[in-house]
């Protein structure tokens, strides 16, 4: 089963939850894969310290224009919703960073002057951390669009009983791309006004996609009770609560998985794993 760990707000503890879940499940003998889909800033590797066994380029398709064939009719620029193709009287320009690889320009070109060609936008890294199969995507600096890299990470997912997708924060295209097709979306939040505001946006996004969801409240004993009330009011299961603990922050800042460093944490993550199985109906 595929579980996405997401959040509206950044810095709520997605990677902490995802890496600890991966480690606990794998140590219990369950075939587990961890996919770092936060390709703009992947950091799961800091905690899982994987041995990388394979690296390959991530590519997206962008149009190339044959100037000998182009008649400058402008059909390519007209169909592009993202303004990635500019048709000028004597030249057709492609702005690869705006291209969403739909292939529309190639289809509409009446003289077959446009063909899609791969462009490297990042690197896919595959390896292992203990028994965890590890995959991460790293988008090249300056690339504007992460969804093609996220698709590459998901396509490279190894076969495993439990596949954990560590999502980027927010509610826009990269998150939608990550959570699409998952069996459950875990939204990690904190009980603060910011946490609640961004959680409610994330809940709207997940519900619009008709995906099952649950909430993990991190630093559950700070702030107020409004996140709890919100979850109750919207019938969203709170699947785990993690108390605020200086020892967790210290372990995190040293790049340790919390289960290894903080007594009692492993049990909480074990409880969350059980709730996930129940939530997905196993």
């Amino acid at each position: 089963m595929r579980i996405a760990i997401a959040s509206g707000k950044g810095g709520t503890g997605k990677t902490t939850v995802a890496t600890n879940l991966a480690q606990m499940a794998a140590r219990a003998g369950r075939p587990t894969a961890y996919l770092d889909c936060d390709v703009e800033e992947p950091n799961g590797h800091i905690f899982l310290k994987p041995t990388i066994e394979e690296e390959r380029p991530i590519e997206k398709l962008v149009p190339t224009v044959d100037p000998r064939l182009c008649t400058h009719c402008g059909a390519c620029a007209k169909i592009c919703r993202y303004g990635a193709v500019a048709s000028l009287p004597n030249e057709t320009l492609v702005f690869a960073e705006l291209c969403h690889s739909c292939g529309g320009c190639e289809l509409v070109c009446p003289v077959d002057a446009i063909h899609e060609a791969p462009l490297t936008i990042g690197t896919l890294r595959l390896g292992r951390s203990e028994a965890i199969r590890f995959v991460e995507g790293v988008l090249n600096v300056g690339e504007a669009m992460s969804p093609p890299a996220i698709r590459a990470v998901k396509a490279a997912a190894p076969r495993a009983d439990l596949v954990l997708l560590d999502s980027p924060p927010g509610t826009s295209c990269p998150v939608v791309e990550t959570v699409r097709g998952c069996d459950l979306v875990l939204l990690v939040t904190e009980p603060t006004p910011f946490g609640l505001h961004d959680l409610s946006l994330a809940v709207e996004m997940v519900r619009a996609m008709r995906l099952p969801l649950g909430v993990v409240i991190n630093r559950a004993d700070i702030g107020d009770r409004k996140v709890h009330e919100y979850c109750k009011g919207h019938r969203i299961p709170i699947m785990a609560e993690i108390p605020d603990d200086r020892a967790v922050a210290e372990a995190y800042s040293r790049g340790l998985t919390i289960s290894d460093a903080v007594p009692g944490f492993a049990e909480r993550i074990g409880g969350l794993l059980a709730r996930i199985d129940e939530g997905v109906g196993r």
């Binding site: 620029a77 303004g83 500019a86 048709s87 000028l88 320009l93 702005f95 705006l98």
Partner: peptide, 11 residues
């Protein structure tokens, strides 16, 4: 426009 305004304007 979210992006690409300069390109469209130039065309």
């Amino acid at each position: 426009a979210a992006q690409g305004a300069g390109i469209q304007a130039a065309q």
